[in-house]
Amino acid sequence: MGAGEPVVEFNDVTVSYVRGTPAISGVSFRVFRDELVFLLGPNGGGKSTVLRAIAGLVRPERGTVRVFGVDVRRFREWWRVGYLPQAASSIFGGLPVSVGEFLRSCRVAEGGLDPVEALELVGADGPRQLLGERIDSLSAGNVQKVLLAGSLVNRPSLLLLDEPTVYVDQRGVSALIELLERLREEWCLTVILATHDVSAISTLANRVICINRGSLFDGPISELLGSESLCRIYGFHLYLVRHGH
């Protein structure tokens, strides 16, 4: 793949879970190497479906999805893609899985991170002690950090995050965005982050794709602020106040 080719390419993609009721329809966009793209839209707008289509978990009814230049149906190098599903913390309920064995299970790539390194990367407190802990005994914020570490443990080139800020306080959101910015530079990581929370991205995004079943907006956050697109996405006017920090 040449340097200028897209990491992810959506070409007129329609996905339906129920025939005749598309979750997304006619969505097209391209994401390039080391971009940080925010996928913005209301609940049920199709953000998760876009990420699931990139992760190969749902098949498009129409159109094509290409990942690293390969049709997603033929893509096999999944260690290059880190994926953090929405509300993933619920999967651990009642099942005794330690942090260490979860991270070792996620690591499938040669040269992936050591579990301790992955936990240090996401800013987990006391990573060595954390390895032996049952995941379902941790706080929601710490579970989210473990899941994020699991999606980074293979040193992926593409990271898909679905609502990663739900259980995270504002300081944690800032730390997450700082981490993603750092990994863009150090790993040339491409990030697509889905969120319904406009405030999580209002001072940070270099590019926003707005989805509400179809593509509504694709451009820098500065153009989205004050535009009619936000009203079209959420159904009412939103006013964002930007701080200088």
Binding site: W78, Y83, P85, I91, L95, V97
Partner: peptide, 11 residues
Amino acid sequence: TLSDELARSRG
């Protein structure tokens, strides 16, 4: 065992 979706996304 944890999640069909998580497993598939890891190949």
